[in-house]
């Protein structure tokens, strides 16, 4: 019940916050819609439909695609490089025996060994 009540009080706060944000944007953006020009301002020509679409739709979409491609491409390249290096890499044995290869060939598996296994 407590969580329900909290939601009920939270909703008006969210509504009020949204209204406040909209009001703030409207007020601060008022000069952009001013009917009378201030002295010295020089508004440019309006945008055509084509320019508007280019500026607000095509360019953002292109930027989105370029950035997404960079992110995906970089991580794909890194993982394929890591896979390639793992394929060819020589094993490393810290604290291993002298002449590890020969020792491994003649070695018999440890019996009754404890420990743990894992995968990731």
């Amino acid at each position: 019940m407590r969580s329900l009540r909290r939601v009920r009080t939270a909703a008006p706060i969210a509504v009020r916050g949204t209204l406040l944000a909209v009001a703030a944007v409207t007020v601060t953006a008022a000069p952009a819609r001013a009917l009378e020009r201030d002295a010295g301002d020089a508004p440019g020509a309006g945008l055509t439909v084509f320019e508007t679409l280019l500026l607000y739709l095509v360019v953002p979409c292109a930027l989105f695609l370029v950035i997404a491609a960079l992110v995906v491409g970089a991580s794909a390249a890194r993982s394929s490089r890591a896979r390639a290096s793992a394929d060819t890499a020589q094993p490393v044995w810290f604290g291993g025996p002298e002449e590890a290869e020969r020792a491994l060939e003649s070695a018999s598996p440890t019996r009754s060994a404890g420990g743990a296994s894992g995968r990731w």
């Binding site: 793992a86 394929d87 440890t110 009754s112 060994a113 404890g114 420990g115 743990a116 296994s117 894992g118 995968r119 990731w120």
Partner: peptide, 15 residues
Amino acid sequence: PERRRLEIVTGEHAA
């Protein structure tokens, strides 16, 4: 790292 496996083996005394 290739097979993504980890094994820990303890010797008789170490266990």
